[in-house]
Simulated scan of single mutants.
Amino acid sequence: MKLTWNKNNNNNKKRSREAIASYPNLPFDQQDPSHDDMQLQNQEHAHSQHQDKPSADALDSDFKQLAQSFQAQGNKLAEDGKYREALGKWETALNLMPENAVLLEQKAQVLLELGDAWSALKAATRATELEPSWAEAWITLGRSQLNFGEPDSAIESFGRALAIKPDSVEAQDDRKTASHLIKKRKQLHSSGLSTDKNRYMVGDSTESS
């Protein structure tokens, strides 16, 4: 049956939905008998996908466990003196846990062993940013600064370490080394030799010439 305007209705409105429904043979009023089944299947499929998808907490836990495994492997390699191999393991762990201060501090130590003072300085700095109340991180930063030729900054870092851990023999000894290097620099400056060498590396002779 074709829908038409109701000419007898002075309001000129279309038929209501109830009026149309009184004609059971209208093609658009019939629903596909499989419609409900398809809708149910779609809902079940969506629910199944939701159940199969791992939660964010589960993924974080898996990443953490994997990172800890790489960290442990790196620790063993470092203990055996295999610093480059250890660094590779720790780099992998840091890709999974980039905000891990312990890994960054360990990385800085190994980089110092490998002679890369600048990279050690960056790693140690980040470790102190993440854990500003960790004395060992400040000690490693101070040593990185010393090896990079910045004894003034190193003294500040060792001072931060001693403020946190006053009985740290390492920080006390390293601060003395930094103070001696600054004294040596002043002596060279007064003798007119500072233009040839402005930075002093750990391992330089600390005896006055």
Rank of each mutant, 00 (worst) to 15 (best):
K176C: 08
S179C: 10
A171V: 05
A163G: 15
F148H: 13
E150I: 05
A163Y: 12
K165I: 09
A154S: 10
A154D: 03
P166D: 10
D152A: 12
S157I: 00
Q172H: 13
L146M: 14
L146N: 06
A171I: 06
G159T: 03
P166M: 06
D152T: 10
K176N: 14
A178H: 02
F148N: 14
A154Q: 04
V169Q: 14
I164K: 06
Q145V: 03
G159N: 04
V169L: 15
R175C: 01
P151H: 05
V169W: 10
D167T: 12
R175P: 01
E150G: 07
D173W: 10
I155Q: 05
I155T: 07
E170R: 13
A178Y: 00
A163R: 12
S153Q: 14
E156C: 03
A154Y: 00
P166L: 07
Q145K: 11
Q145I: 02
P151Q: 07
L146F: 06
A161K: 01
I164E: 08
T177C: 08
P166G: 07
P151T: 04
S157N: 06
D152W: 03
Q145R: 10
R175M: 08
D167M: 09
E170F: 12
E170C: 09
F148I: 07
E156G: 04
T177D: 06
K176P: 08
S153I: 02
I164D: 04
A163L: 14
L146Q: 11
D167V: 06
R175D: 00
A161S: 13
G149V: 05
I155F: 00
E156Q: 10
R175Q: 08
E170T: 13
S168Q: 11
A154G: 09
E170Q: 15
A163F: 12
S179H: 07
D152R: 09
G159L: 01
R160L: 08
G159M: 02
A178K: 01
S157T: 01
P166Q: 09
